[in-house]
């Protein structure tokens, strides 16, 4: 099933710099896609465009068949809340709130689950990522790898169909980085989500089921397996 379609997506800045140009991409559920490329090749920009954080200058992005170009900012926000999950290089956990509360933020914002159900869901997500004992701790009491796993739990809070990660292992050591990629692989394989990960680490990229290589804002290779 096709989750995400990009049709001739181009992003130019006002100063005339082209970040990505003429990208055509289809991503199906269950795919684990690594977007690779040298720095400045536009991989992060492409991820933000696909994740509806940014709008393309031309071309369009379809999520689950819906054209997002015509949607107003609040509708995009609603889509991000319900259908997408983000993980960044920096964990971006709110420092005042415990791991559990951080995971609860998107669930509470969506407001579908009752408080008790929401907490149970957040706990099960943290538990699945091996953080059951650390749920009540503040981010500053957790290690870097643990924080990134809390961030992943938060990205999964509303059960998104598409998980987007921007250099999620950039601040992690090899062991933790490998663990994060294992989690991503499992999420794609077992739950039928699509996972898009931007990385410049070729070894990690090979753990993905598909590798899209970008140079100067264009796709130069797209290999599977």
């Amino acid at each position: 099933m096709t989750l995400l379609v990009a049709e001739s997506v181009t992003k130019r800045l006002a100063e005339g710099v082209t970040l990505v140009s003429d990208i055509d991409l289809r991503v199906d559920g269950g795919e684990f896609v690594a977007i690779t490329g040298p720095s400045g090749s536009g991989k992060s920009s492409l991820l933000y465009l696909l994740g509806l954080l940014d709008r393309p200058t031309s071309g369009r992005v379809l999520l689950e068949g819906q054209d997002t170009a015509s949607l107003a900012p609040p509708a995009l926000a609603a889509l991000r809340l319900a259908r997408l999950g983000f993980v960044f290089q920096f964990h971006f956990l709110l420092p005042e709130f415990s791991a559990l509360d951080n995971v609860l933020i998107p669930i509470r914002r969506r407001g579908v689950l009752k408080p008790a159900e929401a907490e149970a869901r957040a706990m099960s997500l943290l538990g699945a990522l091996g953080l059951a004992d650390d749920a009540r701790k503040l981010p500053e009491q957790l290690s870097g790898g643990m924080r990134q796993r809390v961030a992943i739990a938060r990205a999964l809070a509303n059960d998104p169909v598409l998980l987007l990660a921007d250099e999620p292992t950039g601040n992690l050591d090899t062991k933790n980085a490998a663990a994060v990629f294992d989690i991503f692989a499992r999420l794609a394989q077992e739950d039928g989500r699509a996972v898009l990960v931007v990385t410049h680490d070729a070894d990690l990229a090979h753990r993905a089921t598909r590798r899209v290589h970008l140079v100067d804002g264009r796709i130069v290779s797209d290999e599977r397996g």
């Binding site: 954080l53 609040p74 809340l81 997408l84 920096f90 971006f92 998107p106 938060r154």
Partner: peptide
């Protein structure tokens, strides 16, 4: 600013 950014990427609107 970082927290604002993450809240927005999580799906908080400008109004929120």
């Amino acid at each position: 600013t970082r927290d604002i950014a993450i809240l927005k990427s999580l799906g908080f609107t400008e109004g929120d």
